[in-house]
């Protein structure tokens, strides 16, 4: 069907100017997925080695390379779907390759704004902004921003949240 080609966020009535994430985000996430697959491979290597002898290690290596390639491909495509936009009244965040999500957080409902950075993110100088509302389990993340951009975004959000204050 034709509709499947158009991501859900492109159907938004007014045009939105999406801000992209930092280009370094792809590197970070690919590295992270490689690391995750490596941990999996190490766990899988033990029984395989016991079962097949030293051939098991080769098999693990082959499996790792294959899985890591696929994963890296998927992750690098996913990164491109991330984007955020600041409108007059709300913050829009879009992401997702298979399952597409578009979150809309009104400034007036923001309760908490967190900045966080994992070890790999820190190596590349990236920061994640997390926005929480009073609805539990609905944390909205804007990952992979340069620290200055993240701090500026947080300050803008905080100011807007204090200006437009809406209740629960």
């Amino acid at each position: 069907m034709n509709a499947s080609a158009v991501p859900v966020w492109d159907l938004w009535p007014d045009g939105i100017s999406w801000q992209p994430m930092s280009p370094k985000l792809r590197t970070v996430w690919v590295l992270r997925s490689l690391l995750n697959v490596l941990i999996l491979a190490v766990i899988a290597a033990v029984p395989l080695t016991i079962w097949l002898g030293w051939d098991g290690l080769l098999w693990t290596l082959a499996g790792y390379v294959l899985l890591a390639c696929l994963r890296a491909l998927a992750v690098s495509r996913t990164v491109r779907t991330w984007g955020y936009a600041e409108r007059d009244q709300d913050l829009l965040v879009r992401h997702g390759l298979l399952t597409r999500r578009l979150s809309i957080v009104p400034y007036g409902r923001i309760q908490l704004i967190d900045l966080s950075a994992g070890p790999i993110e820190r190596m590349f100088g990236l920061t994640t902004v997390q926005v929480r509302t009073a609805a539990l389990g609905s944390t909205t993340e804007v990952p992979g921003l340069d620290p200055q951009v993240a701090a500026a975004l947080r300050d803008r959000l905080a100011v807007r949240a204090a200006e437009v204050r809406e209740g629960l």
């Binding site: 966020w9 399952t99 509302t133 609905s138 629960l168």
Partner: peptide, 8 residues
């Protein structure tokens, strides 16, 4: 509070 559109 907030609105979300999800498409599987």
């Amino acid at each position: 509070q907030s609105v979300r559109v999800v498409q599987g």
